[in-house]
C-alpha cells in the first residue's frame, strides 16, 4: 500500500506583495514520479521549495510523511527530503571537495558534536558508485561541469537516504552526452529503486516519458494533465 509522503492543502506563497502560488493542493504517494512543467515564472521552483521546507507557505498546510511541516518539525522532516537545485552558484575555488559535498547530505542525521563514522563513509561510497562519480570524489566541487555537479548533488541526496527527491530542471542546459548519461541514471537509480521524485522541467514531452504523473503549472496554480 503506497504511503502518502507529501500532502499540500490550499497552499499559497507570496513574495513582495506578489502571489507566487495560490490554492495549491497536491498529494504525492510513495514511489510516484511527478513531473511539473510550465512556463518560466509559473511557480515550479517555488513549489519544490515549499515541499522542501525552504520557502514558508503564507497560507495552507504542508504535510510530509503524515506530519505537519512546522518550525519544530522542519529540520527533522527535511532529513528525508533530497533537494537538487537548478543552478548552484559557488566559487570555482571554494574549499570543498566532491566527497565532502556528498557527505554533507548525512550531516543532518549525524548530530551535533559528532563526526562521520564508517557507516557514513560507506553510504557516500555507495552513492558515488551508483551515480558513477567515484573518479570525481577528490576533485574540488567548484571546478565540475554543470552535469557533473548535478550527479554529485543527486549522490548527496542518496547518501542522505532521502525518501523524496526534489529535482529542479536537472536535464536542462546539458550537452547531449551528459543528458543521456543522466537519463540512464534516472532510470537505473531513481526509478530503479522507486524513489519518490518530483521533477521540474519545461520540457513536457520529456516529463511524459519519465514520470508516472505530469502536472502543468501556470500562474502559481496546478492543472492536472495525466
Amino acid at each position: 500500500m503506497p504511503e502518502e509522503v507529501v500532502n499540500l492543502k490550499d497552499v499559497a506563497v507570496a513574495y513582495d506583495n506578489r502571489i507566487i502560488l495560490k490554492e495549491v493542493n497536491l498529494k504525492v504517494l510513495s514511489g510516484e514520479a511527478i513531473g511539473l512543467w510550465g512556463p518560466n515564472g509559473a511557480g515550479k521552483t517555488s513549489l519544490l521549495k515549499v515541499i522542501g521546507g525552504l520557502l514558508k507557505a503564507a497560507a495552507g498546510t504542508v504535510e510530509l510523511f503524515g506530519e505537519k511541516l512546522s518550525w519544530q518539525s522542519g529540520n527533522r522532516l527535511r532529513r528525508n527530503i533530497g533537494y537538487v537545485p537548478q543552478f548552484l552558484e559557488v566559487e570555482p575555488e571554494i574549499p570543498v571537495l566532491v566527497e565532502e559535498v556528498v557527505m554533507m547530505g548525512r550531516y543532518g542525521q549525524i548530530g551535533l558534536f559528532r563526526f562521520p563514522d564508517a557507516e557514513d563513509y560507506l553510504a557516500v561510497e555507495e552513492a558515488a558508485r551508483q551515480l558513477e562519480i567515484e573518479g570525481l570524489l577528490k576533485r574540488p566541487f567548484g571546478q565540475l561541469s554543470g552535469g557533473q555537479k548535478r550527479r554529485v548533488l543527486i549522490a548527496r541526496s542518496l547518501a542522505q537516504g532521502a525518501r523524496v527527491l526534489l529535482l529542479d530542471e536537472i536535464f536542462s542546459w546539458l550537452d547531449t552526452r551528459m543528458k543521456e548519461k543522466l537519463l540512464i541514471l534516472w532510470h537505473q537509480v531513481i526509478r530503479g529503486q522507486k524513489i519518490t521524485s518530483i521533477l521540474v522541467s519545461h520540457e513536457a514531452e520529456l516529463l511524459q516519458s519519465l514520470c508516472t504523473r505530469v502536472i502543468r503549472m501556470e500562474n502559481g496554480q496546478l492543472h492536472q494533465v495525466s
Binding site: L54, N75, R79, G82, P85, R106, G108, R156
Partner: peptide, 23 residues
C-alpha cells in the same frame, strides 16, 4: 572545531545545508 561539519555545510551553500536538515 566542534561544529566543523555544520559550519562547512553552511559555508558551502546555506540553502542546501538547510535542505538536509541542518539549522
Amino acid at each position: 572545531v566542534g561544529y566543523f561539519k555544520e559550519i562547512h555545510s553552511v559555508l558551502f551553500h546555506q540553502e542546501l545545508a538547510k535542505s538536509s536538515g541542518l539549522a
